[in-house]
Nucleic acid binder design. Structure first.
Lengths: 252, 252
DNA sequence: GCCGCCAACTGGTCCGACCAGTGGACTAGG
DNA sequence: CCTAGTCCACTGGTCGGACCAGTTGGCGGC
């Protein structure tokens, strides 16, 4: 039976889109690498044989996607940027903002991702990396005496290290993105909580437990502790009705 | 100790960015909802008191972010779109294209996400949802006799159902996005594999095992089977050196 | 040799114009 | 009265030219 040809719905392709595609393809083929410069807008006008408005619309799209950055007056032209999470984060943030995403979903996601990363890390970690983990604990302890932002940063370093040990940068990226969105939603409440310092100390304690479990190679326990930790840390901000779903993630 | 004020690096804000922000804020406040229309470009020119070029650059950014869609000649103006994964997928795809992301990382991510979703689903599923899962298995079996695309679609329906049962749309979105990227990378190879049909049958068998484990409420086993299934399905396309990392995800 | 000025760019914004296409109103026909 | 066809006001897409503020690198004065 010959397959009937699947016709694609034809939609007019705008000129600026073609420019965007050409640039992205050049990037995909490696002809453009981060740090390189694009020709100036007026030069692109002649190369693409379109008007400057069209070139600029294409550049705006590339810019909003985090591909390039234009600076006024820069004689070198727009710069090709290395990949950044910012665009990805923006998309997830919008997902959360449209309320298609609840806080409990975000936290549940982090419980899963972080737990899995810790489980893998406890298997793959080298002795040196274990030392690094211990060092981040010390840094977290010191940061508590500064302020919440400092602690938050130290906590981020811990999770980044975990993700790096687990050798999966996608986990790392997703964790950071979701973490950023969650903090954007409730960091104010946490920072101004009356027992802010106590919360940080408790969080530190949990992190130390996780490192202990990683040291003994008990990935299962480490993951469980990590999930429990995250639940305790955020549960107060999650409606009771949704807490049950999160609790389902801890038991195993 | 008074906190020293943290000055933000001041950077010029472009006019079109202000427009984008205003629209996104209106969206966040619920003043704009999907399906509604924006005023026409020329009307926006007067409302924002900028030139049409500026308005258009803002619209291009919004359009590339999947927020609105402009159609030539439409007297109703640009349309506010419901959220779509396409923009999110584009970002992840770019992440993969820049080769910051290897196939094994993508697959490892899916093993984690899908395993976790199945584990939660086995705890939260209702009898009706179990019936639905059985139904998707039947659909998958039927799709095998059509072609790989049909099977792929049925498989997608299965994972969508799992994610829905697990009550976390972020898992669902991430799964679909990453799944789409992975398929974009190797679907050709799979579809044209000589033993394509055998692969599909084996995959179906694994899915049935997962459903069995879900029926008995053994979430742990279900997750393990699911991860093993995904590993078997994709391992052939992953370099040997990276397979070890993936295997670490299966054992527990 | 160093330092400060200047001119040739850059990108950001504005204006006015033309085109092909859309869709609603309006009209001719039933 | 309702339907079907026409038409036109208006849409977005693209173009070209213009001005401005800012950056940069080289040139000239010290």
């Amino acid at each position: 039976m010959p397959k009937s040809p699947r016709f694609q719905p034809v939609q007019p392709v705008r000129a600026y889109q073609r420019i965007v595609e050409q640039v992205e393809e050049a990037l995909a083929r490696g002809e453009l690498t981060p740090g390189q410069r694009l020709p100036s807008e007026r030069e692109l006008v002649t190369q693409f044989a379109v008007s400057r408005s069209t070139v600029r619309e294409a550049l705006r799209v590339l810019e909003s996607n985090g591909v390039v950055r234009s600076r006024p007056g820069d004689p070198n032209g727009p710069e090709i940027l290395p990949f950044s999470q910012s665009a990805l984060r923006k998309q997830v943030a919008r997902l959360a903002r449209v309320d298609e995403l609840t806080l409990s979903e975000l936290i549940g996601f982090r419980m899963i991702m972080d737990g899995a990363a810790i489980q893998v890390a406890s298997r793959l970690r080298t002795p040196e990396q274990l030392d690094e983990l211990e060092a981040t604990l010390v840094a977290m302890r010191a940061a508590i005496d500064v302020d919440f932002d400092a602690f938050s940063e130290a906590d981020l370093a811990f999770h980044e290290l975990i993700a790096r040990i687990s050798r999966n940068s996608l986990i790392q990226t997703c964790n950071e993105v979701v973490r950023g969105v969650v903090l954007g939603l409730i960091s104010d409440k946490i920072a101004h909580a009356p027992n802010s310092r106590a919360l940080m100390l408790e969080s530190l304690h949990h992190h130390a437990e996780v490192v202990d479990a990683i040291r003994t190679g008990n990935g299962h326990a480490a993951a469980r502790i990590a999930r429990q930790n995250m639940f305790d840390y955020y549960a107060g901000y999650v409606p009771d009705t949704e807490q049950a779903t999160l609790l389902a993630l801890i038991e195993d």
